[in-house]
């Protein structure tokens, strides 16, 4: 009912390179989606196909249940791709006027969007005089001109300084709070973890995971233990402890993966009773980064 985009076994080959491999997923209205994957995993190629600039080798996709052609659908979409592309000899305002003409919307939103991205004072300066951060903000203003039903962002903070990254993130947060559907491609995991409700994980063009972000990181957690004993001794002692699934040796501590909820105080008591002195004991949740590395390894 509320499907914005549906992919059916989308596939792209560049010669011998299989950039996107039989990819299928679906986007629902109102969610914030993240496409995660290392560099070269097919994120940009996938977005390129969805945005009509890369021809799929096979498979298909439908915007808005396929009622309108892709280029008509794109008028209802806002998209920014890795690099902001504008006519360098035109001012910000002239560039946005051109986008309005292409998207068939009136010029009335231009000032509003320029204020939103904090570029209103510079609107009559040529694009070529802008810094990268300003260019990227202008790209966001441009993508928002039609009040899009979905905003697509491909590595929006790539190459920006910390201030620029912060600016872009706060704008994205603001937009998502207004209920706009967002599709964000990134290899920056904390970025995705912070803003996305759903993730699709890609590697070598294949989908490894699709679902809610918190489900991806959901587990009973892990316990870090540092003692005066060796890894072998601890491992032998704890391998039959109820609730511990797997034990690994980390540089500073022993890491126990849990398969049920364990009270860390009870574990501490157990170790003390065995005359083991514990200098560090901490229960943690896995980060998206760890889950991502688990998935892609």
């Amino acid at each position: 009912m509320n499907t914005i985009l549906q992919l059916h076994q989308l596939d792209k080959k560049y010669g011998n390179i299989h950039a996107v491999n039989q990819l299928s997923f679906r986007l629902e209205r109102g969610n914030v989606y993240g496409i995660l994957g290392p560099n070269g995993s097919g994120k940009s190629t996938t977005l390129g196909m969805l945005l009509n600039v890369v021809n799929p080798t096979s498979g298909s996709f439908q915007w808005f249940n396929g009622k309108i052609s892709t280029h008509e659908a794109l008028k209802k979409i806002g998209a920014i791709i890795e690099r902001p592309n504008f006519y360098p000899y035109m001012t910000a305002r002239q560039n946005l006027e051109l986008v309005c003409k292409i998207k068939e919307v009136s010029f009335s939103k231009i000032d509003e969007k320029l204020i939103l991205v904090n570029l209103f004072e510079r609107k009559n300066d040529r694009f070529s005089t802008y810094s990268l951060g300003m260019k990227q903000r202008l790209a966001i203003a441009s993508a928002l001109l039609n009040d899009p039903e979905i905003l697509i962002l491909d590595e929006p903070t790539n190459g920006l300084d910390p201030k620029g990254i912060q600016d872009i993130r706060s704008i994205i947060k603001l937009i998502s709070q207004q209920g706009t559907t967002i599709l964000l491609a990134s290899h920056l995991l904390d970025e995705v973890e912070k803003v996305c409700s759903h993730v699709v994980v890609l590697q070598k063009g294949k989908k490894l995971y699709e679902g809610r972000t918190e489900q991806m990181t959901q587990s009973f957690g892990m316990i870090e233990i540092k003692t005066d004993k060796t890894f072998e001794e601890i491992s032998k002692l704890l391998q039959n402890y109820s609730g511990i699934d797997k034990i690994t040796n980390e540089p500073d501590y022993v890491l126990c993966y849990l398969n049920q909820d364990i009270d860390s105080a009870l574990l501490n008591k157990f170790l003390t009773e065995k005359n083991i002195l514990v200098s560090h004991l901490r229960k943690t949740k896995p980060t998206l980064e760890q889950r991502f590395l688990d998935l892609t390894e």
Binding site: V53, E72, L74, I77, R83, V99, I102, S142
Partner: peptide, 11 residues
Amino acid sequence: FNTLKQNLIDG
């Protein structure tokens, strides 16, 4: 300028 790509993306 890579604006061909942008024009297509804009619809």
